[in-house]
Design a protein around this nucleic acid. Structure first.
Length: 791
RNA sequence: GCCGCUGUGGUGGAACUGGUAUACACGCAAGACUUAAAAUCUUGUGACCUCAACAGUCAUGUGGGUUCGAUUCCCGCCAGCGGCACCA
């Protein structure tokens, strides 16, 4: 049978019957919200990674639909972003046009691969009707004081000409283009995600993310508990405050260190030559150099002395770039006896090392004793610090506030207006969206301003508060902004008055299963959980649904045949369309699911793919051969079919697709005589994986509606037990023989013993051995513990 | 350094709640059909010992432990992968 003919035929049929895959708002059936990460529609089309992820989601969605669930399986486009902008610049075209072309291409490729998306709910982050709500969310953040403008040293990518969030800098390089990142100070919008740090940790309890994902989130937030402690500075009014997780080591604090960006350090630089010189050197180092040169410490004495509140000793305050300005208070108390970094610093600059706890055989001049347990002294010192009023308990986080401004064209305009009289004023809801104007030149500029800043008609506006002349913000939002909340918009994609109706959100939320890549397990998941928790706090989403995603499945990665990550430069890229052209969509889908466990990394292998093709051909021949069958299934076949139903059902539920395929192969290998009725069941079991072939076969078996909305077969317990089973008999734990026994009599131990006594093999063993113990697990196995007969 | 994960034939990988390890597939070998090839079908295929069969021995990274019985549970080690990392 020619797969091309079948594909064309059924694709047309499905196109004419979109109702097959619609999620129904008014249905009483149990809902199932299956979400796959929406793609960035790049110019190169769907790649294997997409196909793998979407096929997994599609198989699950189809399975659930046949099981009688009201399934929501939507798709959309995360279409803002640099590649489109760069491509538009290069080809002198409009990003809007390019995006349209790319999404059209993606959509048609997806339809060909038979993904059962509900296309009536399609969203696109670059639609003004969509980003209106992205902008609205930003305004709400601003109103709650969670978005603020700040002069911040940012990571500037000289190649992309934009600021980057800390999260987008990998090893000191731009995550996107790999260019070394520079430090610049620019006025930026910043979102206080840190305010939600604890909620983001606690909320994980409400989810069923796998441990890996939960840990990644917890580590990223990086909570540590301790105290802030104030140190007096000799001869000055201000104090130097530090954060420490170990107040019990206060007596061992023999010096202090400030980050070069610390206010006091900056002030001293004005009057002290050596401080000024050091700050200059520190600033010239990139973030990467600072962390790379971790072994060798550098620093300068500030000239100031602090007072250790525990013993009133004067201790020197140093300035060093090993202390981070962005963590804690930007200054530390150094306890060289109990911290490796402080120890290294003390050794280098000849500062005293005073142990707090004495450990036998420890040479504190040689190394720091770090692993000291928090004991009673810890609590005592914490209380003391609070009683004396020199500090208080608090937590500190690795998580930083989220830099939200980008200096690019192709993103959501930040809907803020700067009025000389009123300051920053949000655009009123009624004026949303702030539409991205279609302009001629998209080139980013070196001065750190978005191309929008050159469009006077966009920039100049009236202040919504006082009506005076004002100017619009010209920065745009980061890529994450549109993808933070898209799962809400699918629920009610055409709503003009709200993000989505509360009633519908109550019906559909939370997302039951969210399928995506490992690369989004930290940032995207954290950002979108944050936005959801925020929307919940302001009452924009139902408060009874505590977390947006219930379960997260992170699919694996498909490597090239050379076991390397696919990349154009390596020439090992597999294009799903090409595979589909050659072998058909069903083969591609089935192969992707059969390669290995859904969550693991696997290499592409054409041999295995041929095996899958062979199976589908065989399956097709098998159905055709038996479809005129007039006889009932044999007992053996009945058993196989019912076992297969149970197994496939369970494995699909657990996303164990590779074993589903194996079970179907087994069934086809083993079945001898089969009735048409049972044959249909087999076709149904295969339907989620191979939608085209099964639709064709389903029809050829006399059905006239789609197999994909047929009712999932149920197993019949009556046929699930074998009449005769092979009972393994082990001697001292090793299987020596198998005895045939009627299933109905497995509980009769006497009968089992009788059978054992008839086995030649066992007889032989028992001649020279004596049974000292028997363990019988009815139906499972019999274990004889024996001892050699002596004499 | 910290956190998480993985380790099973020549290969991808199965194995429920501690109960027949190696399902399914690939590859390989032999055979059938064919002028031939492809396709298809049949048989065999963990290692060692044996002409072969029977029997036996050893095998789930490694060393121990618990157990009648361990790929599965516990402890130690080794190797690899992923995330975080001068976070006080």
């Amino acid at each position: 049978m020619d797969f091309k003919v079948i594909e064309t035929k059924w694709q047309k049929f499905w196109e004419e019957h979109p109702e097959l895959y619609l999620a129904k708002d008014e249905s009483d059936k149990e809902k199932k919200y299956v979400l796959v990460e929406f793609p960035y529609p790049s110019g190169s089309g769907l790649h294997v990674g997409h196909a793998f992820s979407f096929t997994g989601g599609d198989v699950y969605a189809r399975f659930k639909r046949m099981k009688g669930n009201n399934v929501m399986f939507p798709m959309g486009w995360d279409a803002f972003g640099l590649p489109t902008e760069n491509y538009a610049i290069k080809t002198k075209r409009k990003p809007q046009e390019v995006t349209k072309e790319n999404t059209d291409m993606f959509r048609s490729q997806m339809k060909r691969l038979a993904y059962s998306f509900d296309w009536s709910r399609e969203v696109n982050t670059t639609d003004a009707n969509y980003y209106k709500w992205t902008q609205w969310i930003f305004i709400e953040l601003f109103k709650k004081g969670l978005a603020y403008k700040k002069e911040v040293p940012i990571n500037w990518c000289p190649s992309c000409k934009t600021g980057l969030a800390n999260e987008e800098v990998v090893d000191g390089k731009c995550e996107r283009c790999g260019e070394g990142v520079e430090r610049r100070t620019i006025s930026q919008w910043v979102v206080k995600i840190t305010e939600y740090a604890d909620k983001l940790i606690d909320g994980l309890k409400e989810t069923e993310f796998i441990e890996k994902v939960k840990q990644a989130q917890v580590n990223w937030i990086g909570k540590s508990e301790g105290a802030r402690v104030k140190f007096k500075i000799k001869g000055r009014k201000e104090v130097l405050e530090v954060f420490t997780t170990r107040p019990d080591t206060l007596p061992g604090a023999t010096f202090m260190v400030m980050a070069p960006e610390h206010e006091i350090a900056l002030e001293l630089a004005r009057s002290k030559e050596d401080v000024r010189e050091y700050l200059k050197i520190a600033r010239s180092k990139s973030e990467m150099e600072r962390t790379e040169l971790s072994k060798e410490k550098s620093g300068v004495f500030s000239g100031l002395m602090a007072i250790n509140p525990v013993n009133d000793k004067e201790i020197p305050i140093w300035i060093s770039d090993f202390v981070l300005a962005s963590y804690g208070t930007g200054a530390i108390m150094a306890v060289p006896a109990h911290d490796e970094r402080d120890h290294a610093f003390a050794k280098k600059f000849g500062l005293p090392i005073v142990p707090v706890i004495n450990v036998e055989g420890w040479d504190f001049e040689d190394k720091a004793m770090v692993e000291v347990e928090k004991g009673a002294e810890f609590m005592k010192m914490l209380d003391w610090v609070e009683d004396e009023g020199i500090g208080k308990r608090c937590s500190s986080y690795h998580l930083r506030d989220w830099i939200f401004s980008r200096q690019h064209y192709w993103g959501e305009p930040i809907p803020m207006i700067n009025c000389p009289k009123c300051g920053w004023v949000p655009v009123p809801k009624t004026d949303l969206p702030v539409v991205l104007p279609e302009i001629e030149a998209y080139e980013p500029t070196d001065d750190g301003k978005s191309p929008l800043s050159k469009i006077d008609s966009f920039v100049n506006c009236k202040c919504p508060v006082c009506g005076g002349e004002a100017k619009r913000e010209t920065d745009t939002m980061p890529n994450w902004a549109g993808s933070d909340w898209y799962f809400l918009r699918y629920i009610d994609p055409h709503n003009d008055t709200d993000i989505a109706s509360a009633e519908l959100m109550k019906k559909w939320m939370p997302v039951d299963v969210y399928i995506g890549g490992d690369e989004h397990n930290t940032l995207h998941l954290l950002y979108s959980r944050f936005i959801y928790l925020f929307l919940k706090d302001i009452g924009a989403v139902p408060k009874e649904i505590s977390e947006p995603y219930f379960k997260r499945i992170s699919h694996g990665v498909i490597l090239g045949t050379d076991n390397q990550r696919m990349s154009k430069s390596k020439g090992n890229v597999i294009v799903p369309e090409t595979v589909a052209d050659k072998f058909g969509v069903d083969v591609l889908r089935l192969y992707l699911m059969f390669m290995g466990p859904f969550e693991s990394t696997m290499a592409w292998n054409e041999n295995t793919l041929m095996g899958v093709k062979r199976f589908l051909d065989k399956f097709n021949r098998f159905v055709i051969k038996h479809k005129k069958s007039l006889s009932d299934s044999s007992n053996k076949s009945k058993l196989i079919i019912n076992k297969t139903i149970v197994g496939v059902d369970k494995d699909l539920e657990n996303f164990s697709f590779n074993t589903v395929v194996a079970k179907l192969m087994e069934a086809v290998n083993e079945i001898d005589v089969i009735s048409v009725e049972d044959l249909k069941k087999l076709v149904q079991l295969c339907a989620p994986l191979a939608p085209y072939l099964t639709e064709e076969l389903w029809q050829s078996l006399g059905e006239d509606s789609s197999v994909h909305i047929s009712e999932w077969p149920e197993s019949n317990k009556e046929y699930l037990t074998e009449e005769v089973i092979q009972l393994p008999v082990a001697v001292n734990g090793k299987v020596k023989d198998k005895i045939e026994i009627e299933f109905a009599r497995i509980a009769e131990k006497d009968y089992v013993d009788l059978l054992v006594s008839k086995s030649e093999k066992l007889k032989k063993i028992l001649e020279s051995n004596k049974i000292i113990r028997e363990i019988y697990v009815p139906g499972k196995m019999l274990n004889l513990v024996v001892k050699e007969n002596k004499g």
